[in-house]
Amino acid sequence: MKFEGESQLEGSKDAVWDALNDPRVIEKCTPGCQSLSIVAPDSYELVTKIGIASISGTYKGSMRLGDRLGREQYAMFAEGAGPIGTMSVAGTVALRENGAATSVNYSFEVQVGGAMTGMAQRALLPIAKLLTKQFFKSVDKLLAGASLPAAEEGGT
């Protein structure tokens, strides 16, 4: 399963680049993130509490950033496990100047696993897309200066 998307972030390419590569921003903006611990540079472990419509539960996962091309593109690999099963997401994030703002283009490959009900299988890709959109929206808000409510459950 693949998905792609684009988000417009208010901020210079440099500011956006720094934000996306900053674990403190990742922790604040990952939907439902309860904690992020740094295992090694660019390698994090996260605990998130998902609450999207009916689907809820605590998911543990990890994230790695790397393969940077200048300050234009980086690769991201994330995987999580929880009641719905397991999911891994791998792909690239590319930044492009768009006037005073920055266009962020992402392209990810999703793999799912674990014994999940057919109902959950249907929702996984849409949920991955939604969480990704929410993440970039939160980063955008953060760059704009708004503070985010603490320990927000992902999904609303």
């Binding site: 799912v112 696993g113 057919g118």
Partner: peptide, 12 residues
């Protein structure tokens, strides 16, 4: 190909 079974309930 990863050995994941996709039919784990009676809707699948």
């Amino acid at each position: 190909e990863r050995g994941q079974l996709w039919n784990t309930d009676l809707t699948s």
